[in-house]
């Protein structure tokens, strides 16, 4: 009986409504033509191609919403915008992906397979928070600490150093305190929203 997909028990405040309210994207407009999935360069990597993800949100049940938030799809999405540029209903799928990622991340529901990708983003933001600008070497070192992928890309580093593409020391902005305050305010707001 578990496999029977029931359309009873719709949520009144599921992802469908939340996305409509917070991003102004109406996923009900999707008529499942699949053009997004057909054009998506990453569809093959995803557990649910974009059109299927839209359908799952349309179903609007707590169980499917859980599946959506735990999906791998949005973490491999590269925001290339191919889907939305061709969507006949002009649905801003990349915006939805952004929403799903942030929601899944703040609720701690992220797909396990996505950890290296998320760790990379975390390392990236850390580098900016500290320096104001990206410091590639710092980013890579921090990323390796998070993922234990110690040997990855080691062969690339000497070549990069040789060609002046990797700097030992970060370039920093002057108003670092002001920038750190910007980071802090966004974190604080997110905490408030969770409460």
């Amino acid at each position: 009986m578990e496999n029977i997909h029931s359309h009873l028990g719709h949520s009144a405040n599921g992802l469908l409504q939340e996305i409509r309210q917070q991003t102004a994207v109406n996923i009900q407009a999707c008529y499942q033509c699949g053009k997004c999935s057909a054009g998506c360069p990453l569809a093959g990597e995803m557990d649910f191609p974009p059109s299927l993800l839209m359908r799952m949100i349309q179903v609007n049940k707590p169980e499917t919403d859980e599946k959506v938030l735990g999906a791998y799809s949005m973490w491999v999405c590269l925001t290339c915008n191919t889907c939305s540029s061709r969507c006949p209903m002009e649905i801003d799928i990349p915006r939805v992906m952004d929403h799903l990622r942030e929601k899944s991340f703040t609720l701690g529901k992220t797909n396990k397979k996505a950890s290296p990708i998320i760790d990379f983003h975390k390392a990236f933001l850390k580098s900016i928070e500290v320096n104001g600008r990206l410091h590639e070497l710092g980013l890579i070192v921090y990323y390796k600490m998070l993922t234990f992928r110690l040997m990855q890309d080691v062969m690339l580093a000497p070549g990069m150093l040789l060609r002046g593409k990797l700097h030992l020391f970060p370039e920093r902005i002057r108003q670092r305190k002001q920038l750190a305050a910007i980071f802090k305010r966004t974190y604080k707001r997110r905490k408030e929203q969770e409460v």
């Binding site: 499942q32 699949g34 057909a38 974009p50 299927l52």
Partner: peptide
Amino acid sequence: VRGRVSKIYERDGKLIVKGVDTLMGAEAV
């Protein structure tokens, strides 16, 4: 095939049609 075509391009005299089968879980065709 139930699905919309996303792109067509030409290669070596053939037209490559990139579509999808939505009845197969949106599998690429």
